[in-house]
Simulated scan of single mutants.
Amino acid sequence: MIQNGTMNERLKRARISAGYRTASDAINRFGWRGSTYRAHENGQNHFDAQTATNYARAYGVNAGWLLTGDGAMSAKAKLSRRAELVQTNGDCPDCDEKRSNIPVLGVAAAGVWMEDEVRRMTNGNGRTHPFPADPRFPVEAQFDLIVEGTSINRFAQAGDHIRCVDVEAAGIDIEDGDLVIVERTRGNSLKETSARRVRRSGEHYEFWPDSSDPLWQTPVIVKDGHSEENENVRVIGLVIWKFRDACDRDA
């Protein structure tokens, strides 16, 4: 009988099999919490069935094998089809009951400031996307943004959709390493909506671009809800994954 190793060894094997050389590569690709994932892969902490399912979907393996070592490792026939759907337009012939029209609320773009009235007129334009909702969170708390620019190009490229969860509506606590949607307000109405990594440092928070672009290497430093430039700053969403819409790409 072939020994499949321990849970963390199977997780590492699945990652390497999926083409991610390091844990950091996978963490950046899927937007996972770095400390949580590393604790799972190095055997410090075990993970539950739901977490195994999430990892299995990402790596194209069977969740049961990942969790217990039983059965076949590969689930590529099923999951490669799902991956292809992410690359097309979200049509899911096998998942009609799970489809949800998630609202596209606008763009995530560091350095782009708009007045409230302009934001209401341009952001989303009433668009929705049928790609299925993430079952871990309330459907009504989920929304999509479209990435503009290079401020999170380590995680998502311009034109990618990022699926987000309203942290207030879903009761989510933000942790170090999370990729979040940050809204900054200048004056009474000028706003910027961007995606940034959270770091806690003493009594303040730092919101960093996740970028290789030299233009985006400076954090927004926030204490008591205000930046050093006296902007009002609040976290409005947690980024849970990304996908590419072929309709947007071909437009």
Rank of each mutant, 00 (worst) to 15 (best):
Val233Ile: 14
Gly149Gln: 13
Glu231Thr: 02
Gly149Met: 10
Ser227Thr: 02
Gln157Val: 11
Asp166Lys: 05
Gly124Lys: 06
Asn153Phe: 06
Phe155Asp: 02
Thr185Glu: 02
Arg154Pro: 00
Thr185Cys: 09
Arg199Ser: 05
Gly202Arg: 07
Gly106Thr: 07
Gly159Pro: 05
Arg234Phe: 02
Ala169Asp: 02
Gly111Lys: 11
Val182Asn: 11
Pro209Trp: 10
Arg119Cys: 13
Ser227Ile: 00
Gly124Pro: 08
Arg119Glu: 13
Asn153Lys: 06
Asp116Ser: 15
Val118Phe: 11
Asp176Ala: 10
Arg127Met: 13
Thr128Tyr: 11
Pro138Glu: 06
Trp216Asp: 15
Glu148Lys: 13
Trp113Arg: 15
Ala109Asp: 06
Trp216Ile: 07
Gly126Ala: 07
Ala195Asn: 01
Glu115Asp: 15
Val104Gly: 05
Arg136Leu: 13
Lys191Phe: 00
Leu238Thr: 09
Val182Lys: 11
Gln157Asp: 13
Ala141Cys: 10
Met114Lys: 15
Gly106Ile: 08
Glu229Leu: 01
Leu105Pro: 01
Glu140Asn: 15
Arg234His: 09
Pro214Gln: 14
Lys223Gln: 06
Phe131Cys: 05
Ile236Phe: 06
Trp216Arg: 07
Gln157His: 14
Thr122Val: 13
Phe143Glu: 09
Val233Ala: 05
Val198Thr: 01
Pro130Ala: 05
